[in-house]
């Protein structure tokens, strides 16, 4: 079930006893929580709502709430967050969870309780009996990370609903600076809404108000590397280090970016379009678009050399063979001297 469908059904009073909210999109999760909270008025909320974090609270406490009739009002609302027992995670915690109790509850849920489990993962551990039972007996709400076209659609819908306007270039920059993460986009939009007096969001506003993330900076770094602009690359690298970014992390993201460029280059040469690349690589279309623009300018040999050089750095960093900080600078000097 999509979030919009859930909102409609709850408004109509069509409320199920058990829900599983599955996925990692914070913005959608928040919308789901708001929709459920609207089932209770303010007076009922203090009495009939409780949230249990499974890394702190025992599942039994949530089930006690679930099996208790509401004190006043029509229903109890119980949220269960971080239910790691539905996933392959096994954190060492000083609490034991009554999984058998949950199984029994799912078989006979209390009609006056709305029991909502929030599993902030891409998928449950299908080998576990409780996960199978839950997916069968609960109403599953899909809050998976939005990607590609969905992000653009939701973004436009959100901006238009609020009565604002944004041009394509500003939208692209916003998506890029937010790394295509919809929840980050929404958070950044709040700042832009405040700044746009005339209800028009401009590229300048986005550039001024939405600070670049590590990934954005890495994107620039990739560009400097491929253009063999040693000075700019090393300056930006040192800035990242001053911002307390780890050399291993920087190298890892660079490596991922070059892997993407290589994949795009190879597949584009086989005649694949932006749309099919998005499908195959499961990456935001904006990143594919930027990658396509980049790879046209650079040779296969340069991309390969950069990728292999960074991979060697990764190995050396992790095996402690050289100074982590200096490895990138050495790579850059070496790479800049390779003939294209």
């Amino acid at each position: 079930m999509k979030v919009s469908e859930l909102q409609k059904s709850l408004k109509k009073g069509d409320v199920q006893p058990v829900y599983l909210v599955l996925g990692q999109e914070d913005y959608l999760i928040q919308q789901v929580k708001t929709a459920f909270m609207a089932l209770l008025d303010d007076a009922e909320r203090a009495m009939n709502f409780a949230s249990y974090d499974m890394t702190v609270d025992p599942l039994g406490a949530a089930l006690d709430d679930g099996t208790s009739v509401p004190f006043f009002g029509d229903r109890r609302l119980v949220f269960v967050t971080q239910p790691f027992f539905l996933t392959s995670e096994t954190p060492k915690l000083p609490i034991t969870h009554d999984i058998a109790g949950l199984e029994a509850y799912l078989a006979h849920p209390l009609p006056t309780t709305v029991f909502v489990l929030f599993a902030k993962v891409a998928k449950l551990d299908g080998r576990k009996k409780i996960s199978k039972q839950l997916q069968k007996q609960a109403t599953v709400i899909d809050v998976q990370k939005l990607n590609g076209r969905d992000v653009d659609q939701q973004l436009m819908h959100l901006i238009q609903t609020k009565g604002y306007d944004i041009d394509a270039a500003s939208r692209e920059l916003l998506v890029q600076r937010s790394d295509g993460d919809f929840s980050a986009i929404v958070a950044n939009l709040q700042k832009l809404f405040l700044a746009a007096d005339d209800k028009k969001i401009t590229k300048t506003m986005v550039a001024d108000l939405v600070s670049p993330t590590l990934e954005n900076n890495i994107f620039d770094l990739v560009d400097y590397v491929l253009h063999k602009n040693t000075q700019a690359a090393i300056m930006l690298y040192r800035d990242l280090l001053l911002n307390k970014e780890e050399p291993i992390k920087i190298n890892s993201i660079l490596l991922n970016q070059f892997r993407l460029l290589l994949q795009v280059k190879i597949l584009a040469q086989k005649g694949m379009t932006q749309g099919s690349l998005t499908e195959i690589l499961k990456i935001h279309p904006y990143r594919i678009k930027l990658a396509l623009q980049s790879v046209r300018q650079f040779s296969m040999s340069d991309l390969t050399a950069a990728f292999l050089g960074l991979q060697e750095n990764d190995y050396k960093m992790k095996s402690g063979q050289a100074d982590k900080v200096l490895l990138f600078e050495l790579f850059m000097l070496k790479f800049a001297n390779i003939r294209s």
Partner: peptide
């Protein structure tokens, strides 16, 4: 003086 207790549904 009054105490109120909510019952539990069993199955």
């Amino acid at each position: 003086f009054i105490q109120l207790i909510t019952p539990v549904r069993t199955f």
